[in-house]
Design a protein around this nucleic acid. Structure first.
Length: 483
RNA sequence: GCAGCGUUCGUCUAGCGGUUAGGACACCGCCCUUUCACGGCGGCGGCACGGGUUCGAUUCCCGUACGCUGUACCA
């Protein structure tokens, strides 16, 4: 049997990183098995629909580095891929259930339902639809039911859950799971507005779209028995289930906005590389059991196995994500990143620089930062004269005799044939040797004059990238203004 | 409340009856050094608890505790 999986989000806003991981696991599983990964939009709740959410979602996945094989956008032979466009199908299948006695009509108002739950809560019972006393086709009788339907009375279709027995299914990550039928509610299948609930729609669609594996978040585990019952009621073979663990806040609750960034777009805007986010999120809850941390998309695909997905939820460790981003920052060719840096630089008032220069600066500074966008602030002096000079650094390294030590360097740098890292290094070494002084007595003042900062990359490399003219200008200016 | 699921360093995890319980992030120290970083080396730190099963349990079983998720005409 060929592998077909689906990511089935509801379009209520931006893509959550938890959603990204679910989508990713589906994608990895499909690719690993040479199968198809489908995007299906679960927009059956008209009250929560958000206009641009669908494209935002697709774009977020595309940014992350994966595409769906079938989707509303792309189409496919199992469409339409928006549930709101499949309502006739759900009506048709709910009718089958009604006819074979697996479902029934109910006419209760939401007020009546609230009252029922309230009563149950008070007597310490689990809230559950009470088929024997509420307004439904069993308590009303056939004639009355037929009459209400004929007069178009608002109604829903509910699943008729057996009173006794167990419902069991096997989950790829959790093993055998058993629920008692008596604990399962007579779930609404078709709402009074004519739209199906998730439960009906996802079962019908998964069957019709020939989904082989349902890979979704753990929060769905408690409603899976309802789905199993539906497959049985239709006489369909159920797909394999895999409920993956949740991504958690530091306090172990389901990862939410209250604790910081949760949307893929947030991470994109923060300057994370998609490869880093994907790599990180893939390793939250799954691990190919090696001693390695860095995996490309292709490597993730190659190693992915649902059987190795963890059962327990994973706290989203922002610090480790940052570290991972820094790893990717160092792994790219600087010239590949240069255009992006140029874009970032646009929002600063620095004089424009070329792509070659940008690449050089990236190469110079990237081992000291986590994000590309740290460069304009961390290395501001690569784009403009130092605006300030670190007081502490200055008092430590600018002594009364420093000026005399530095001044001859002006001449030496001017007459240097090639203003390169190596040449600068050699010539300064030579100079300090002749004066019998420590290199640091020169290096620190140079760093102060040229960058204004205590921290930075190797000084000679920094100088060679800045260029002779700029270095001499900064030195002279500093010398003029300081005793 | 009820149901289900879960529980290895602070965090992500390896482990699938016998290991000095391994790696990564974070943290600390040392080395390198031209500051900071990178890198190298080292340290800190964990099998929730109690019963079984077994010659032997982190690992298998049962409880307990704790946590999480679900409990909608939301997905």
């Amino acid at each position: 049997m060929s592998v077909r999986v689906r990511f089935a989000p509801s379009p209520t806003g931006f893509l959550h990183v938890g959603g990204l991981r679910t989508a990713l696991y589906n994608y990895l599983f499909a690719r690993h098995n040479g199968g198809k990964c489908i995007l299906r939009i679960e927009d059956t709740d008209q009250t929560r629909y958000v206009e641009s959410a669908e494209t935002a979602l697709i774009e977020a996945c595309r940014w992350a580095g994966f595409e769906f094989d079938e989707s509303p956008e792309k189409g496919g032979e199992f469409g339409p891929y928006r549930q709101s466009e499949r309502t006739d199908t759900y009506k048709k299948y709910s009718k089958i259930l009604l006819e074979n006695g697996s479902a029934y009509y109910a006419f209760d108002t939401s007020e009546d339902l609230d009252k029922m739950r309230e009563r149950q809560q008070k007597s310490g019972l689990a809230p559950k639809y009470d088929r024997s006393i509420m307004r439904n086709q069993y308590t009303l009788g056939e004639d009355e039911t037929a009459r209400l339907i004929a007069t178009d009375e608002p109604r829903v279709v509910r699943l008729k859950v057996p009173i006794t027995g167990d419902i069991r299914f096997s989950d790829i990550v959790r093993g055998e799971v058993v629920f008692a039928a008596r604990d399962i509610d007579d779930q609404i299948l078709l709402k009074s507005d004519g739209y199906p609930t998730y439960h009906l729609a996802n079962v019908v669609d998964d069957h019709l779209m020939e989904i082989s594996h349902v890979i979704r978040a753990e929060e769905w585990l408690p409603s899976t028995p309802k789905h199993v019952l539906l497959y049985q009621a239709f006489g369909w073979e159920s797909p394999k289930f895999a409920h993956v663990p949740l991504l958690l806040n530091p306090d172990k609750t389901k990862m939410s906005k209250r604790h910081g960034d949760v949307f893929v777009d947030d991470f994109k805007n923060k300057g994370f590389f998609p490869e880093a986010l994907v790599n990180f999120v893939a390793l939250c809850g799954w691990n190919p059991s090696s001693e390695r941390e860095i995996y490309s998309m292709n490597e993730l695909i190659e190693h992915f196995a649902l059987e190795k997905v963890n059962k327990a939820g994973a706290i989203f460790d922002y610090k480790k994500l940052e570290w991972m981003n820094s790893q990717y920052l160092r792994s790219y060719e600087p010239i590949e990143l240069a255009p992006e840096l140029l874009k970032i630089l646009d929002s600063y008032a620095y004089p424009k620089v070329g792509v070659e220069y940008a690449a050089q600066v990236i190469g110079l500074l990237r081992e000291r930062i986590n994000f590309l966008h740290d460069i304009p602030t961390f290395g501001d002096y690569m784009f403009t004269r130092p605006l300030a000079f670190d007081d502490e650094y200055k008092s430590k390294h600018w002594k009364p005799e420093t000026k005399a030590n530095i001044t001859p360097l002006l001449e030496i740098f001017t007459s240097l044939q090639e203003f390169s890292h190596q040449a600068l290094h050699d010539v300064v070494q030579e100079y300090v040797a002749s004066k019998q002084m420590a290199l640091k007595l020169i290096i620190h003042p140079l760093r102060l004059m040229i960058t204004g900062k205590q921290v930075g990359a190797g000084m000679f490399e920094t100088m060679s990238i800045l260029g002779r003219e700029e270095v001499l200008a900064r030195m002279k200016s500093f010398l003029e203004n300081n005793p």
